[in-house]
Amino acid sequence: MSLAYSIHYTAENSYEHWVHKADWQFLIIPETNATQKFVSVEFSNSINAVNQFSINGYGFPTIRIHPKQQFKEISFEASFKLIKKEVNPYDFKSHSNTAEAFRKIEELDFKVDFESFLSPTPYTAMPSKYQEIFRFDSRITIFENLQELNHWTYLKIYFKTGVTDVNTTVNEIIEKRHGVCQDFAHLFCAIARLNGIPARYVSGFLHQGNGYFGDSQMHAWVEAFVPFVGWLGFDPTNDILAGTNHIKVSHGKDYKDCAPLKGVVFSKGSNETRHTVQVLGQLQQ
């Protein structure tokens, strides 16, 4: 059984004064992978600038726009269709030897292989006073530890918009205890990495209608690498494992690698931006 998804994304920008020079990059196209297939993309903008399909520095597909005329208002609209295979997050062959897994993560080769997702970044650097905030328990499996971390993160932070912003670091998250999906994901990544587990920030869409947090904007969750198993998805904002409702777009070391929209706009005065996301799913036999 699979789901046929139809995703609608809009962004509207308006500026007080004429803008003569601007560049945007959208990182919102669903990834094609083992569970996401037949991705189709429709993209348009209101001033008929050329939509350039390209990639970002990590190879994820992007759309770049560089208008050649001046404007005060511009809106973007994207529609994606894809088939998502039903995912049972618990459906993996678990590795029984816990000690071996904990030994594995100490190996130099392992550390070199996953260097990108083990090193702290400006967003996820844990201040020294919080180094012991969540220690993995070597008596239970790494997967179980990660599940506990998922639950712990869920309880640690209250979902609330407007408290944090796109620049909030782990230190502030711990102290303010409020945040949005991005902050949940950063905290999870920081702690997993501290415990030697490769963790990557994931950006994507969440299927609406299930009352989950973070469904009217783009969503963020985490993938952690469990030795002898592979990458597994955790959604600490909702205290669940990533599954059929999670449609992945990109991953990276932190938000900075995955920002859905990057813009370099030269304008004076104030400006306003509005985004909407709508995800519709239909069961397929």
Binding site: D23, S54, I55, N56, G57, V264
Partner: peptide, 22 residues
């Protein structure tokens, strides 16, 4: 490339890194 690295830099060329990577 302000789209890939420092976004507030006007010295570079948006999209240059993608062209390089390709």
């Amino acid at each position: 490339d302000p789209l890939e690295f420092k976004p507030d830099s006007s010295l570079g060329v948006p999209g240059l890194f993608a062209a390089y990577k390709k």
